[in-house]
Each structure stands twice: as structure tokens, then as C-alpha cells.
Nucleic acid binder design. Structure first.
Lengths: 207, 207
DNA sequence: GTCTATAGTCGGATAGAC
DNA sequence: GTCTATCCGACTATAGAC
């Protein structure tokens, strides 16, 4: 796990992610991160220059990893239900690792630090682009193309999932388990019907 | 503005809110807050005991203020469109003051500080209850009562609006202006139609 | 590349004068 | 209730030995 074969740069990135997840942005410091990775605090400055620069590097690394993992699934999305299904898979796979929570903390920490905000924004541009394209495909061939602005819908979807992770951080019980995403899949199925002008019957046994 | 007639306790609460909004949770400290309110740093500990306790007091105060301001409007809500309209009004009225952004920062900061999380959760219980009741009324008299769990929907709605403020903090241009909420009102109107099983313009040529 | 040591700053919190 | 003064731990960042 903590094998010496893993390059220090990577170890620092992983430690920063873990610290962000567990301690939150308010508890982040070079010393905290070093404790998580069991390396010397000074290495952070040697490899990344500053703590903020390290956080931007974490954002970039996470954005790339995530794009690689979910790009294929996202490209197949043509309905809202499918989009929520990908989101659910992402939530289930990433929740334990706490990577979305870490991202949420970074975004929250970017307030009042303009360069950190810009770095994170740029780091996640490829990812938001992927999500935006999926939403465009959901809208395509529905009567609402050109009526509902894709940019706003993308923002709303991104906001929804970031907000969920934020609330999960506040109250792990509230959004835990399958219930929340199951409900959202139900709603998405209903809206998909609406998009196609077909109203499905209410289903007493939620899928 | 900085009149001596305002009790110190209030001045501290307001300064903490402003500091939270401008500097974010990562930049919060007794000294930062004292600078914002132009009072002595030691007063925070005299009046509130600790910085964390002050933050919980801010959450309580904001929850009460908000409940008082929007309870009436929320009680009239019986459709999703009306709920989004209240959210839009809240966003427009509170955005400049930055109170939602401050709350977002508090929630983000609560990660890894269990007692802070519990304090904030309790502080906002009356408010989430109000929102939950509105959603219950939206669902009432639709075929989906008892099928779609209100708790999950409340969580999703709360998450959506928290996430929006989080993203606005990251990129003020992205969610600025009227566009985002106008789009959400459009979507809400469509979904309202769905909830009542009334499809705007049936199109038999589409399966 | 990684370590120790340290400068210099800022933080929470308290004691005690007024 | 509000102030000054202060303890002391934690922080960023750098210098320099290895």
C-alpha cells in the first residue's frame, strides 16, 4: 500500500485527497497532508510549490481519472434516466473513496482565492464538457431542443450532485443508502416520459 | 452603520457572516471576524465561547431570519413552479448579501467536525421542515403521493440550491443573471403538467 | 530527492487591568 | 463588557545538511 515504488508525487496527491475528504478544506495544511501520507511536510513545497498549487493538481488529476472512467458510459446516455444511472454508479463507486466530497471541499475552499478557483475550473472543464454533451443528447429529438438552454441544465445537474455530497457531509444518514438515487431515477423516468410526450403510469413498486 | 447602539453580540454575528461570505470557511478565524466587525478578537470568546460555537449561532440566527421572511410565501406553495419562484426570490434577495454562500461555507466546514455539523443541522431543522411541507403539498392530489418519498425530494431540492451557490462561488459568471432560474421555472412548469397527468401538447406520432 | 531545523506569521484561548 | 497582553501551538515556506 505504502510501497516505496510509488512515486512521491503520486503519494502526495493521494494523501491530499484523503486529507481533504476526512478533514475538509478548513482542516487542510501541509502538515495535515504529510501526516496522511507519512512523508515530510517540506516535500509538498519541493514538488508542488504551495498547498494551493497542490490542490489544483489534485483537481486536475481527479478530473482526468474521472473522465477516463466514465466517458464511455456518458457517451451512451440519451435519456435522463440513463444520466441518473451513470450518476448513481459514480456516486456508489466514488462515495467510499470520498473523491466527490473532496472536490466539494476544494470548490468551497476556492471562495475568496481567485487563482484556486480558476485552477479548479480549468481542471474540470473536460468533465463538465462531457456532462454537457450528454444533456444535449437527452434533449435532442425532444420538443424542447432550443427551448431549454443546455448550459443552464448542465449547471443545474452539476449543482444537484455537488449539493448532495455537501449534504451527505453534513448528515451521513440523510442521503445514505439507495433511497435518494432510486427516487431520482423514478423522477428521471417520469421526466423522460414528459420529454417524449408519453406519460407513464405511476409504479407502486419502485424499480 | 457601525452605531454603538447595536449590541455587540449582533455585531459579532454580522461580522462572522460577512467574513464567511468573503473569505470562505478556510479563511475563518477569530481575528478575521474581528477585523470585519472592527471589534476586539477576545469578545468572540467572551460572548460565544469559541469560533465554532459562533458559527453555530450564525446558522441559528440565519435559519430564524429566513424562516420569518419566507414562511408565508412557502405556505402558499402548491406547485413546483411556485416553489421555484420562492427559491428565485430567495436567491435574488439573499445573493447580494451572500447569506446562502455563507451557509454553504459553514456546511462545507462542518466536514470532520461532528459537533459543528450537528449544530448546523439542528439550526436549520425548522427551515428544512418548511421546505419539506411545501413539497408535500406539491405532491398532494397528484398520482405520486406515497410513491415518491418526500424526504428524498426535499433533500434533492435543498441539494440543488446549495450546489448552485457553491458553483456561483466557483464561477460567478456561470450561474449569474436570470437565465438559470428562468430555465428552472420552465422545467418546473413542465413537471407540474406531468404531476397532474396533463401533457401540454400530445403528439401521437411519437411513441 | 529527502531530511532537519528554523524563521516568521497567525491561530485559539485565557488572565487580568480597567 | 471591553480592553491589553500574552502563552503556546500550528502554520507556510525556506535554507542547508545529507
Amino acid at each position: 500500500m505504502t510501497s516505496t515504488r510509488i512515486p512521491t508525487r503520486t503519494r502526495i496527491l493521494e494523501a491530499a485527497l484523503a486529507a481533504l475528504r476526512d478533514e475538509g478544506i478548513a482542516g487542510i495544511s501541509a502538515r495535515t497532508i504529510a501526516r496522511y501520507g507519512d512523508f515530510n511536510q517540506a516535500l509538498i513545497f519541493y514538488h508542488f510549490g504551495s498547498v494551493d498549487a497542490l490542490l489544483v493538481a489534485v483537481a486536475r488529476s481527479e478530473s482526468e481519472r474521472r473522465s477516463a472512467l466514465y466517458a464511455e458510459a456518458l457517451r451512451d446516455v440519451t435519456s435522463l434516466r440513463e444520466l441518473v444511472a451513470v450518476a448513481r454508479r459514480l456516486h456508489e463507486e466514488e462515495f467510499q473513496a470520498g473523491t466527490v466530497a473532496a472536490l466539494t471541499q476544494m470548490i468551497a475552499g476556492a471562495v475568496g482565492t481567485a487563482e484556486l478557483a480558476q485552477g479548479i475550473r480549468e481542471a474540470f472543464e473536460p468533465w463538465t464538457k462531457l456532462v454537457g454533451e450528454s444533456i444535449a443528447r437527452v434533449l435532442a429529438d425532444t420538443p424542447y431542443v432550443g427551448i431549454l438552454p443546455e448550459g443552464d441544465l448542465t449547471t443545474a445537474v452539476a449543482a444537484l450532485f455537488l449539493g448532495i455530497e455537501l449534504l451527505v457531509g453534513l448528515d451521513p444518514d440523510a442521503a445514505a443508502g439507495e433511497s435518494l438515487f432510486t427516487t431520482m431515477e423514478s423522477v428521471a423516468t417520469l421526466v423522460d416520459g414528459l420529454l417524449l410526450h408519453v406519460v407513464p403510469e405511476p409504479d407502486p413498486s419502485r424499480p
